[in-house]
Design a protein around this nucleic acid. Structure first.
Lengths: 225, 225
DNA sequence: CTTAAAGTATGACAAATATCATATTTTAAA
DNA sequence: TTTAAAATATGATATTTGTCATACTTTAAG
C-alpha cells in the first residue's frame, strides 16, 4: 500500500490541505485501481460510495442525451478528484466517467472524506472552491453551446486540448480523441466534426496525420473561436 | 429594520439553518432594497461584497456572449440566494442579475455570511448543497443546449416556466418574459422563437394572447421535448 | 390623446448543420 | 497474415436555424 503522503498528484487538488495524520489515515483506507482505456470508472445513475483521486491518465465525464448521443461535459486529468459533487449532494452520479487512456486511480471511501471535510476547514474550503470553479465553467460552457457555431466550438476545443494536455514531441496534441468523441465534446454530429477538421486542414490552420492533430496556426483558430 | 427571524422566505434557503442569535445578527447588518423591473442587481464582472436574499420577485442570471446576445443561464425567484458562488470563489460575478419583475432583496455583507459559514456547519452544508444542485442543473442544461433542437428546448422551457412559476387565475403562465428573453433562455434568435411559438399556437399545444402564453396540451409539449 | 419607439409577427432567403449513402483507411480479432 | 469490423472521409441532400426586410401591434413618453 503506497503512501498518500508521497503521492505526486496530492499537491494538485484539495487533498493538499490534509494534515500528515489525515494523509496516513487516507493511505490506510484507500484502494488503488488500474483502469484500461475505454473502461468506465462509474456510470451515470450509479451510487458512489466515495471519491476517486486520479493518479495518472485522463477520463471523460459524459451524459447520454435523449437523442442517444453521448455529450462530453468535461475532461478530467491526473491530480483531479472525481465524485465530489455526488458526495456532498448525497445523490447518485449525474455523469459517467470513462477512461480515455489507461489510468491509475485511488478510491477513498465517503466516510473518511466526510470526516476530513468536517475536521479540516482548509480541505472543505478547497473542495468547495473546486466545485464553484466547475459551476462557473459549466455556465460558460453552456453559453458557448447556446451561442457559438459548431466551427467556433471546434476551434475553441482544439485550442483548449493543446493548452490543457500539451503536445507530444512531434508537436501533435497529446490527448487522443476519436472523431466521435471530439464531436461529443463540441456537441455536433461526427460527420460535421470530420468535415470541419478537413476544412481547417485545407486552410492550413491544423494538420491531420491519422488520429494526430497538429495546430499550425493558433491565431487563426483564436480568431475563429 | 425588519427581522430576518420573521421573514417568510427564510425557510426556503440555506438561512434556515442559522440560529436565533445569528438571525438577529443578520437582521442588524442587512440592507433592504427595492429593485424595479428591468434594473440590475449586479453585473457580470462586478465585485460582490456579499450575498443577496430574494424576498420577492424573480430575476434572470445572464451572460453576454461573444456574438453580442444575452444568454439567460438561470431564473432565480423569491427565497433563493444570489452571489454565493462568487463569495466562496472570491471572484467577481460571472453572470449579471436583472429583475424580471419588481423585486425586494436583502443584501447581507460577506463578513457576516463567511462568519456564519465557519461557525455553523448546517449552514455551510446547505450552501454547498445548493451550489452542487446548481452544478448538476448547469451540466444538464449544457447537454440540452448541445443535443436538443430549438423546438425541443422551447417546449421544455415552456413546461419548466409553468411548473416553476405557476399559472395566473386565467391559466396563463405567471412569469412574463419578452420574446427576446424567451429566445435568450433557449439560445436562439428572437425570430426563430416567435416562429416556433406561432407553430405551437397553430398546432393548439399553446395559445397566445399578447404576451400571455397558455399551455393547452402539456402532453404534446412533453413529447416534443 | 398623439406619436415615436419598442416589441411582435411573418415572408424570403441564406447559411449552418444533420442525415444518409458510400468509399477508403485503420484497427483489432481470428 | 488475413479478414471483418470500426473509424475516417466525402458527396448529395434535407432540415434546421439565422438574417434581413417589412408590416403590424403594443407600450410608454410627451
Amino acid at each position: 500500500m503506497s503512501k498518500c503522503e508521497q503521492c505526486i498528484v496530492r499537491q494538485f487538488n484539495s487533498i493538499k490541505a490534509l494534515t500528515k495524520d489525515q494523509l496516513v489515515q487516507m493511505a490506510n483506507c484507500k484502494t488503488s485501481y488500474t483502469i484500461k482505456k475505454g473502461e468506465p470508472i462509474f456510470e451515470e445513475g450509479e451510487t458512489l460510495n466515495g471519491v476517486y483521486c486520479i493518479k495518472d491518465g485522463v477520463c471523460k465525464l459524459s451524459k447520454l442525451s435523449s437523442n442517444g448521443k453521448d455529450q462530453i461535459v468535461k475532461l478530467v486529468k491526473a491530480g483531479e478528484l472525481l465524485g465530489q459533487r455526488s458526495m456532498i449532494s448525497e445523490e447518485s452520479a449525474n455523469l459517467s466517467a470513462v477512461a480515455l487512456e489507461d489510468m491509475e486511480v485511488c478510491f477513498v471511501p465517503k466516510n473518511e472524506i466526510l470526516q476530513f471535510f468536517n475536521q479540516n476547514n482548509d480541505f472543505s474550503m478547497n473542495v468547495m472552491k473546486t466545485i464553484c470553479g466547475d459551476l462557473k465553467e459549466a455556465d460558460d460552457h453552456m453559453v458557448d453551446m447556446a451561442q457559438k457555431t459548431v466551427k467556433q466550438r471546434l476551434a475553441e476545443t482544439l485550442l483548449y486540448l493543446e493548452d490543457t494536455f500539451g503536445k507530444n514531441d512531434d508537436g501533435s496534441i497529446r490527448i487522443q480523441l476519436s472523431r466521435e468523441e471530439l464531436a461529443g465534446m463540441i456537441g455536433t454530429a461526427t460527420e460535421s466534426c470530420i468535415r470541419l477538421l478537413s476544412e481547417f486542414n485545407k486552410a492550413k490552420s491544423i494538420e491531420l496525420q491519422g488520429k494526430k492533430i497538429f495546430i499550425k496556426d493558433k491565431k487563426v483558430l483564436q480568431k475563429i473561436s
